[in-house]
Structure formats: C-alpha cells, structure tokens
Design a protein around this nucleic acid. Sequence first.
DNA 1: AAACATACTTACTTATTAGTAAGTAAGCAA
DNA 2: TTGCTTACTTACTAATAAGTAAGTATGTTT
Lengths: 199, 199
Amino acid sequence: MSTAAPATAFDTRTRILHLAEELLLARGFNAFSYQHIAKELGVKPAAIHYHYPSKEELGAAIIQRQQRRLRKWRDLPRVTELTPPQQLDALLDVYRHRAAHGPQVCLFGALAADFLTLPAVMQQELRTFSGELTHWLAGVLAAGRADGSLQFSGHPFSKAAQVLTTLAGSLQVARVHGEEQFHYILRQLRTELLPTREA
Amino acid sequence: MSTAAPATAFDTRTRILHLAEELLLARGFNAFSYQHIAKELGVKPAAIHYHYPSKEELGAAIIQRQQRRLRKWRDLPRVTELTPPQQLDALLDVYRHRAAHGPQVCLFGALAADFLTLPAVMQQELRTFSGELTHWLAGVLAAGRADGSLQFSGHPFSKAAQVLTTLAGSLQVARVHGEEQFHYILRQLRTELLPTREA
DNA sequence: AAACATACTTACTTATTAGTAAGTAAGCAA
DNA sequence: TTGCTTACTTACTAATAAGTAAGTATGTTT
C-alpha cells in the first residue's frame, strides 16, 4: 500500500497527538506527562515513547501539525475567496470555538509562558508558526484597508501582531474570568476594525 | 521590638519571595521548584519550607504582594494626580520595564496558561488581582474619555479588559519574537487611545 | 514455514518533586 | 544557667517524571 503506516499504528499515533495537544492546551507543556496520555488511551507510558521517543519530539509534532492545519485552512478556496472582513471573522471563529470549549487557550498562549523552559526545537517551531500566522493576518488587514472594508491606523503588520496578541490573551482571560469577558474583548476588537456605516 | 520578626528572618523571607517571583515569571508555576530557590539562596530546600510550608502558600504570597503593590502604586499621590493619559502611560511603563528585563511576562501572563493546574487559593487570588487592575484602568479610561483626553468606543470596562489582555499578551510576544515586536504592539495601542491632534 | 516488522508490555533506572520529622546552633529572656 | 524561639540542616518518604532495554503477541512478507 502507499500509506506510510498500518491502520492501527496511524490511529494510535494520531490519538496520542490529539490527546497530547488537548493536555498541552489545558495544562501547559510542563504539567502534562506521558502517564496522562497513556492512562487516557488505555496503554502503558512506554507505548507513547514508541511513537514519540521524547517529549520534545511530541511537542514539536503538535506545533508542526498546527502549522500544517493553518496553511491548509488559509489556502482553502472557501477561505481565500472571502472578503477581508469575512476572513477576519473566520479567524475570530477559531478563537470563539476554543473559548466555548474548556476554555482552551491557543497554541501560542499555551507555550509562550513556558517558553524559556522549552527545548530549542520547539521554540523555533513556535516562532515560525506564530510569524506565519501574523504574516497572513497582516495581508488580510492590508487588503481590507485598501478596499475600505477594514479600518485601523499604523502598519498592517503591527496591527496584525496586536490583534493576534489580544486574541491569545483573550483566551487566557476566558479561562480566568469566564467566557463573557472573552466576548467583551472580541466585540471590542471587531467593532474597532469594522468601519462604522453611515447609513 | 514592634517588628514582626527578627531582621535575619525578614531578610530571608523576602529574598525567597523575590526569587520565587522571578522564577515564576521566568518559568511558570510548574517549572520552578524549592530547589531552584534554595540553590540560588545558598540554603537547603527545607529552609524554604520553613518560611513557606507549601508551594501553594508561596504562590499565594507572590500574588498577594503584587496585589499590595498595585494598591499602593495606584493610590500614590504621584499617580492619582496624573491626567488619564499620563496614568495610562505610567501603566505602560510598568510593562515596558518588564519587556526590557528578560523579557519578564506579567503575573497574569505567567499564571493564566497554567491556571487549571493551580491550587484553588491561587486561582481566586489571581482573579481578584486581575479584576482590581481592570477596574482601575476602566476608571482611568472613563475619565479620559469624559474629558476628551482619551478616545475609544464601547464600554470603559470592555476596553480596559482588552488593553490589559493585549499588554499581558505583548510580554509573551516579546519573549518569543523579541522586544521590537512588543514596542510595535504598544505603539499601536497608544496611538489608538490618544486622540489625533488636529493642529 | 521461516523471517521480519509492528506495536506494544514489563520491568527497570535515574532524576526530581513537594513535603516531613528530627536534630542543632545561636541568640534572647527569665 | 535554664529554657524558649528562630532559623535553619540532615535525612528521609512517597510520588512522579522522562526515558530505556528486553521481551512478546500479532500479524505480513517471502
């Protein structure tokens, strides 16, 4: 067959990655262990090591998968064909979804606090991931301002960095103060970016 | 004497608290240990337990001290007598200072990611601390908009939450992407809040 | 059927964690 | 000088961590 691995292997590998990601976003990198994953999966911790020999590799795999997801999502016709305000809303929906589930924080918000304790490989992957997301949003914002569908001052890149920073922080706020606070912040963000219609 | 404890006791207790705070802001709550503090202080880990029996108490003491600092700072005549834009700048200076040293993140940014793993006492203290800071800033923003020295849309409380969220996030960004990115975000924030002079 | 790879388990090591209990040196108080 | 408090150290426990080595059952390939 042309598949890289047998079906069972693929399943377990994926389930490990999925669980590890959930645990990472819920507890941070230093507060989840192979035991947590193993127990939830009904296997022994050594089985996790078989698929991901070190925690560093597991962590890097989580970032890489999010990176692949971002690229895939960003390049979807369903997304590329949207207007800039619609693309912004599509991005906000990702965060709204996280806020409603847990609340989960985003990958950046989960790893940035522990950043200095992360293996160098993970630090670099997080930089790349975050940089690419910011670059994409900067493009959306620039296009939106050019066609008059979005408003803001300053450079698109600065504004994109500010917006993403606020979004990452807003999920942390949701965790501490509840989902309502999160929506206040998002409404504030959205209102400021969308031009007021003078009807 | 009227002092609560002998000079030596006070010194060590304070030095522990200071070091613990540094380690907390640098590594997160789950990635620093009594050993780290003890080694840096030149004592045995058990000595730390003598002053702060449990990590939960040590963590709570850190938040409580920041809470006291906030109240003291906020009520300083030097601060209360400033105009709203000056008060905002005074707040931003606190974050600028952190960004230039380390960069350190803020207490909220350090604890929010690990929030679900924190002892209940610390969760509650962080909520109180963060809530009080937001309340203060909301007052500053409301006063500033009332006298025309600050501009923003929406409720002062929502805007305050958004600003503080962005500030917390911006220090995490500084850690990942460098101090320059932090200043981009802060300039963006400041520019939007200060009315453009029509000279 | 023999050989091999996959996906594990069992059993282990080494390191680190928070926390405790008992002992001790130094200083102050009665 | 006797006793008490402060501020520790020494020596420990129990739990948990990441990671490894060797064994094993279940296939698949040849």
